[in-house]
Design a protein around this nucleic acid. Structure first.
Length: 562
RNA sequence: GCUUCCGUAGUUAAAUGGAUAUAACGGUCCCCUCCUAAGGGAUUGUUGUGGGUUCGAUUCCCGCCGGGAGCACCA
C-alpha cells in the first residue's frame, strides 16, 4: 500500500502541486508526532507565506477518513496520523504477504549494472583491506539485484606485472612445492617477502626478475607454467574465502585478459589527437592542467594501469551495454578514476557519466598501514577463524545444548566480521583490532542475529498465528515504532542503492532490532489473550522476515537458534 | 606546494538543509521464580575554528587549524 499517495489524495486543495507535496513527505523525527509529515518550509518561499500559515491551510484542506485518522499543523509541519490498528494491519500483512520479496521492486528492470570489486592480486594474501572492498561490492551487488537490475560482478584480477617475475625468481631459488601446496598463498608470500629482503643486498635479482617477466610476456613455457600455477594456488584459496563470505562473481576477466585489447585504445586516442608524447612517454593532458596528465604508455613502450582500465571500460561497455559501471575501490585511487573517466569524456563517450568510482576508506592495523612486502598484514582467514572460535566459545558458555553448533558458530563469527566492516559509511578509514571484531554486543552482527533467533523462538513457544487477531495488542509506543520501521524498509533499500551505501541497510537493521528488543522486554506474547497474542506474533513474523532480508543483502546468514 | 577527503560525547560513529543532535563501546550502577541476559534500563555534549547564505546549517559556500590520501613511467 502506498501511504504517501493516501496522504496526497486526502488533500482537497489545488493550491499546491501534488508532485511537490509528495516529494516533501517524510518521517517525523519523533514518532509521537505522527506517522508521516510534510515540512512546509520549502513551500514558504514560492508561496510567499509563512510555513505556519501553509501548514494550517494544508491541514484544514485534508479530508480525514478511512485509514487516515488525524492531521495536525504544528510549527510549519503538517503531521499525519493513521488509524493505528489499520495501519499496523496493512503494513504487517503487506510485508508478510510479499514474503522474502518485501522491500524489493523492479525499478531496474532491463538495466544492467557492472560492479568491479574485490579484484584480488595473485600471490598476495587476502587481508582485511580486501574484506572491506569485497563486502561492500557484494552488498551493493545484492542491493541492485533486489531492485531488479541485471548485475555483473567483475573480479578484475591483479594477474599481471613485474611482481610475477620476482615471484618466479623467488620460487626457483627458495620455493618448496610441498610447502606451497600445504600453505598456499602464505608460502608464496613468504618467498615474495624474502625476495624483497634479498634484493636490497643483491641487486642482480631485480634484473633476473625483469627477464622472467619478459619470458611470461613472450610465452616461454616454463614461465607460463609457473605463472598459471601461482594463479591456481591463489584462486583456490580465495574461492574458499568467497564461499564463506557468500560472494560470487560473473566474470574473472583480470589484467592479463586485456593484454591484447589496449593497442586499439591507444590507436583511437592517437587518431583523435589526444595522445601526446612527453619525456618519451605517451600521455593525455587535460585542459588547463586541471589534473596531472594521464600516463598511458611508458617510454619503453609498456602499458600501464590506466591503459588497462581504459581497455576494460570499452570491453565492458561493448560486452554488457551497462547503464552504470561501478568501481568499488579505495579512495587512494581517486585521481586515477577521475583521469580515466575524463579521458573517456574527451574521446566523446557519452557513457562516461555512467562510470562511478564508489570510493571507500582504508584499513590499517594498530601497527601501521598494511604491507605485504613488509609482512605487516592480517590474513582475513585468520580473522574469520578467530571470530568463529569466539562464537563457538560463547555458544559453549550460554547454550551448550544447541544443535548444529559448528554451523551456527560459522554463521555468527563470519556475520560479525562482515557486519563490522559494513556498519560505517564506506568513506571512513578503519583501524583493525581483534577487540572490536570480537565484540558481539551492541550494534553488531550477533546482536541482530540474536534478535532474529528471538523472533523465531517466540514461534516455537507460541505456535502459528491463529485466525483471531486483535490489533489493539499493537497499540503501544514500542509496536508502533516497529510498524513504522517495517513500512520504511523498501525506501531503505532504494536509498542505499542510490548512495552506493550498504551501511544504510546495516544501520536500519540495528534500529529495527533495537525496536524489537524494546518491545520484547516491555510486552508479552505468550500467555496473552488469543487475539493480542496473534497480533504480536504477526509483528514478530514481519520483523524476523525483514531482519533476515536485510542481513541477506549484506551477505549475512540468520541462524534459527543461537 | 597543488588537488581531494575527513574533523560530532573518553572512544567508534548516525543524522534527504528541518521539530529537543542520535546510538553503541568502555567505566559505574540496576533488572532473569518472567516468551533465549549475545537482552533491557540509568549515567556524559561549545558538532575543530572564524565568517557567509538561509525562516532554519552537523549538512551548502569562503578563510584558518588539525589529520588521511594522491600528485609521470607501480597497481
Amino acid at each position: 500500500m502506498d501511504y504517501r499517495k493516501i496522504i496526497i489524495d486526502s488533500i482537497q486543495s489545488n493550491l499546491y502541486d501534488k508532485q511537490v507535496l509528495s516529494e516533501l513527505i517524510a518521517a517525523p523525527k519523533d514518532a509521537g508526532m505522527g506517522d508521516f509529515c510534510i515540512p512546509c518550509f520549502k513551500l514558504a518561499k514560492e508561496m510567499r507565506k509563512s510555513p505556519a500559515v501553509i501548514a494550517e491551510e494544508l491541514a484544514s484542506a485534508v479530508k480525514t477518513g478511512g485509514i487516515l485518522e488525524e492531521v495536525k499543523a504544528v510549527a510549519g509541519f503538517v503531521n499525519f496520523r493513521f488509524d493505528k490498528a489499520r495501519f499496523a494491519q496493512q503494513v504487517l500483512n503487506d510485508a508478510i504477504q510479499a514474503g522474502e520479496n518485501y522491500g524489493k521492486n523492479d525499478e531496474g528492470k532491463g538495466k544492467t549494472v557492472c560492479i568491479d570489486y574485490s579484484s584480488v592480486n595473485i600471490a598476495k594474501p587476502f587481508h582485511m583491506g580486501h574484506l572491506l572492498n569485497t563486502a561492500l561490492g557484494g552488498a551493493i551487488y545484492r542491493i541492485y539485484k533486489a531492485l531488479g537490475y541485471e548485475v555483473v560482478g567483475i573480479n578484475h584480477l591483479g594477474d599481471w606485472g613485474t611482481q610475477f617475475g620476482k615471484l618466479i625468481v623467488a620460487y626457483k631459488r627458495w620455493g618448496d612445492r610441498e610447502d606451497i601446496e600445504k600453505r598456499g598463498v602464505r608460502g608464496l608470500v613468504d618467498i615474495y617477502v624474502k625476495f624483497h629482503k634479498e634484493e636490497e643486498t643483491c641487486p642482480e635479482l631485480s634484473d633476473e626478475a625483469r627477464s622472467w617477466f619478459k619470458a611470461i610476456e613472450d610465452g616461454n613455457e616454463e614461465a607460463l607454467e609457473l605463472f598459471e600455477y601461482f594463479k591456481r594456488i591463489t584462486l583456490k584459496e580465495v574461492s574458499r574465502i568467497y564461499d564463506r563470505l557468500h560472494i560470487s562473481f560473473d566474470s574473472y576477466a583480470g589484467e592479463s585478459f586485456y593484454n591484447d585489447k589496449m593497442q586499439p585504445v591507444l590507436d583511437e586516442l592517437s587518431d583523435k589527437g589526444l595522445l601526446e608524447t612527453s619525456n618519451g612517454a605517451k600521455v593525455v593532458k587535460f585542459q588547463d592542467d586541471t589534473m596531472p596528465p594521464c600516463l598511458l604508455q611508458r617510454s619503453d613502450g609498456a602499458t600501464l594501469y590506466a591503459t588497462r582500465d581504459m581497455a576494460a571500460a570499452f570491453y565492458r561497455k561493448k560486452t554488457y551495454d551497462f547503464d552504470k559501471c561501478l568501481y568499488v575501490v579505495a579512495y587512494q585511487q581517486n585521481l586515477h578514476f577521475q583521469q580515466i573517466f575524463k579521458v573517456l569524456e574527451m574521446m566523446g563517450c557519452q557513457w562516461h557519466k555512467d562510470m562511478i568510482h564508489v570510493a571507500h576508506g582504508m584499513v590499517s592495523l594498530e601497527s601501521g598501514s598494511m604491507s605485504t612486502r613488509g609482512g605487516n598484514v592480517v590474513f582475513l582467514e585468520d580473522v574469520l577463524n578467530t571470530a568463529v572460535a569466539k562464537a563457538k566459545a560463547v555458544i559453549e558458555e550460554k547454550n551448550p545444548m544447541l544443535e548444529g553448533k559448528e554451523l551456527i558458530a560459522e554463521q555468527v563469527g563470519v556475520g560479525a566480521v562482515l557486519f563490522g566492516v559494513l556498519y560505517n559509511s564506506r568513506i571512513k578509514d578503519m583501524v583493525f583490532s581483534f577487540d572490536k571484531v570480537l565484540n558481539f554486543e551492541g550494534e553488531t552482527g550477533p546482536y541482530v542475529q540474536y534478535t532474529y533467533a528471538r523472533c523465531n523462538s517466540l514461534f516455537e513457544k507460541c505456535g502459528d498465528i491463529g485466525e483471531e487477531i486483535d490489533y489493539s495488542g499493537l497499540d503501544n509506543e514500542e509496536c508502533r515504532a516497529i510498524v513504522g520501521l517495517i513500512e520504511k524498509y523498501p525506501e531503505i533499500i532504494k536509498e542505499s542503492a542510490k548512495k552506493y551505501e550498504p551501511s544504510v541497510v546495516t544501520r536500519y537493521v540495528v534500529d529495527l532490532s533495537q525496536a524489537f528488543n524494546k518491545f520484547y522486554f516491555e510486552h508479552k506474547v505468550k500467555g496473552e489473550a488469543e487475539g493480542i497474542k496473534n497480533a504480536r506474533l504477526l509483528l514478530t513474523k514481519a520483523t524476523g522476515q525483514v531482519v533476515a532480508s536485510a542481513l541477506s543483502l549484506l551477505g549475512i546468514e540468520t541462524p534459527q537458534k543461537m
